[in-house]
């Protein structure tokens, strides 16, 4: 069925096709909606809520909400960006994010989102949670201090790698990522797996490649995250 759907994002007409999510249609049109857990090719599950937009006044996750004819979407508004800042702040205080020595720094999507939203310091009190490391695998390590529970590794390992190496365990504040063995070394995880490269933060790191790109040339050193999408306009 070849049908174009037209709707508005922040008052500007955007066209899309039936079955597309608001995120997909916006990306194609060069409108950046901030996001963290969403990654093209993975199943969106709307867990981080950073991509929260308002569809005809009602809050929805852009990565899961299908487009519909004539709806009015609010995206880049002071109210929504303030809520996004709140979410990013919570990610920072609920983990132990030591950017100064993290291999992912400069290429980290959480950090980049904080930069884009102009966060100088999180407004909430730091929790300093007790988190574990798993460096048993010869080519990868897991640092749960940095994990934001986005679920990308879970999804990639299950759907793309078909290995189900990762899964969530626990509930609420005790929720964390577990592996399908005592340690990562006990799983059939390989460094070439999709799941090894999807982590938005430095929670799953490939060994021996850290700090490869010098400061100043990393992904988000000079251009905010989302600039590539906005350049399509």
């Amino acid at each position: 069925m070849d049908k174009t759907i037209t709707f508005k994002i922040d008052g500007v007409d955007v066209k899309g096709f039936p079955g597309q999510t608001i995120m997909e249609a916006a990306d194609a049109a060069g409108v950046y909606i901030p996001r963290l857990c969403y990654l093209k090719d993975l199943t969106p599950h709307g867990s981080c809520r950073v991509c929260t937009i308002k569809v005809d006044g009602r809050a929805q996750a852009a990565c899961t909400q299908p487009i519909a004819e004539g709806v009015e979407v609010e995206n880049n508004t002071a109210e929504l960006n303030e809520k996004r800042r709140d979410i990013i702040d919570m990610f920072f205080v609920e983990g132990n994010h030591f950017c100064m020595f993290c291999e992912k720094s400069g290429n980290c999507e959480l950090q980049a989102m904080a930069y884009r939203l102009g966060i100088c310091a999180p407004k909430y009190p730091f929790q300093f949670p007790d988190c574990s490391l798993d460096a048993t695998h010869p080519d990868l390590f897991i640092d749960r201090n940095r994990c934001i529970l986005c679920g990308r590794c879970v999804n990639a390992s299950k759907v793309i790698d078909e290995k189900s190496v990762f899964e969530f365990v626990g509930r609420g504040a005790a929720k964390k990522i577990a592996v399908n063995a005592d340690t990562l070394a006990g799983t059939n995880m390989a460094v070439s797996d999709k799941a090894a490269g999807v982590c938005p933060v430095g929670a799953i790191i490939k060994k021996r490649v850290g700090f490869e790109v010098p400061v100043g040339k990393r992904l988000y050193d000079t251009e905010p995250i989302g600039s590539d999408i906005e350049a399509k306009q």
Partner: peptide, 18 residues
């Protein structure tokens, strides 16, 4: 003014917090 990561989030010294 909190100047730098240690003033803002404890920084490297805060690695002992657990």
């Amino acid at each position: 003014i909190s100047c730098g990561d240690c003033a803002i989030d404890g920084g490297i010294p805060a690695m002992r917090n657990n």
